[in-house]
């Protein structure tokens, strides 16, 4: 499996409601040691939102430096973004990811 297999997949909650698309994957460095790199990255969750505008610039996340006006604009645009823990994924195929929970039960995207 590749990261590109997951990015832009449509995410649907247990009630059949479309939440948005996968804009990024959050990963933690708590995997097995990999050669000279050290502990590897494990995918913890999906960053999901209804719109992808500005996501690749990182302005939707407060830890990213940038013009204050752009950051405020993009944070407003992405206020409905949600973090989907990997354990909440029911199935993943053909560009669709089905969850085992309702959209309302998902937390907003916390800072890294």
């Amino acid at each position: 499996m590749r990261v590109s297999d997951i990015l832009e997949s449509v995410v649907i909650d247990v009630a059949g409601t479309r939440i948005g698309q996968v804009h990024d994957l959050r990963a933690l460095r708590d995997g097995p040691v990999q050669g000279v790199f050290g502990p590897g990255y494990r995918v913890q969750a999906l960053v999901v939102g209804p719109t992808g505008v500005g996501v690749r610039l990182g302005f939707d996340r407060t830890s990213m430096d940038g013009p204050a006006l752009l950051k405020r604009l993009f944070r407003h645009v992405h206020r409905n973004g949600r973090l989907v823990d990997w354990s909440l994924i029911e199935s993943m195929a053909d560009g669709e990811i089905h969850l085992r929970v309702k959209a309302a039960d998902l937390p907003p995207v916390p800072d890294r």
Binding site: V3, D24, L25, A27, L28, R29, F37, V55, G58
Partner: peptide, 15 residues
């Protein structure tokens, strides 16, 4: 010895 300071602990893969 495992390295820890050569990369962030938490990342967004695409970013």
């Amino acid at each position: 010895t495992a390295l820890f300071d050569n990369a962030r602990h938490t990342i967004d893969v695409g970013l």
